[in-house]
Computed example of a mutant assay.
Amino acid sequence: MLSRPNRITRGADYKTVVRRGARCAGAHTVTYVKSSDETRVPRFGFIVSKQVGSAVVRNTVRRRLKAVCSAELTGVRAGSDIVIRALPSAATADYAALHAEVARCLARRAA
């Protein structure tokens, strides 16, 4: 699970990362990465809209994405802000597919 310092909590921060960050698209997610020279821990945010499914499905997808990011945390550059937007196909994707896709994008943009 991601600790409080590793989460993006303000809406303005989400907006900045999505508008100014580097984009990496996959079949189930779109990952936005904005790097800075700050010496803080990397932060993650998740966008899972109602198009993904019911509340139960959205929360399942969000929990899977949080687990993936927690596993990949050590390979992410300090000071990075990452926002992951789940696409509707993420509802039917298994954990391994989500992990592979997010890990690929993080390795390309935030390593």
Results as ranks from 00 to 15, higher is better:
residue 31 T to S: 14
residue 28 H to K: 01
residue 26 G to N: 01
residue 47 I to A: 13
residue 13 D to I: 13
residue 75 G to N: 05
residue 17 V to I: 14
residue 49 S to N: 00
residue 32 Y to I: 02
residue 107 A to F: 02
residue 48 V to F: 07
residue 5 P to N: 02
residue 24 C to Y: 10
residue 108 R to P: 00
residue 15 K to Q: 14
residue 67 A to P: 01
residue 76 V to Y: 08
residue 3 S to E: 14
residue 71 A to S: 13
residue 46 F to G: 02
residue 41 V to A: 15
residue 104 R to I: 05
residue 78 A to C: 13
residue 21 G to R: 07
residue 72 E to T: 01
residue 39 T to R: 11
residue 71 A to H: 09
residue 60 T to E: 12
residue 40 R to F: 01
residue 2 L to H: 03
residue 100 A to Y: 06
residue 64 R to I: 01
residue 3 S to I: 08
residue 65 L to D: 06
residue 12 A to V: 15
residue 56 V to Q: 03
residue 31 T to C: 00
residue 90 A to C: 02
residue 76 V to W: 05
residue 81 D to C: 06
residue 90 A to H: 03
residue 4 R to G: 05
residue 90 A to S: 03
residue 31 T to V: 13
residue 33 V to I: 10
residue 109 R to S: 04
residue 28 H to N: 09
residue 24 C to F: 11
residue 45 G to L: 07
residue 59 N to R: 05
residue 39 T to G: 05
residue 2 L to S: 04
residue 51 Q to P: 05
residue 95 Y to C: 03
residue 55 A to E: 07
residue 76 V to A: 02
residue 63 R to M: 09
residue 53 G to I: 07
residue 9 T to C: 09
residue 100 A to I: 00
residue 32 Y to G: 07
residue 67 A to Q: 08
residue 95 Y to A: 02
residue 99 H to D: 12
residue 103 A to N: 00
residue 99 H to K: 07
residue 26 G to Y: 03
residue 37 D to S: 10
residue 99 H to L: 10
residue 106 L to Q: 08
residue 32 Y to F: 11
residue 25 A to N: 01
residue 1 M to F: 12
residue 44 F to A: 04
residue 44 F to V: 03
residue 109 R to N: 12
residue 105 C to E: 11
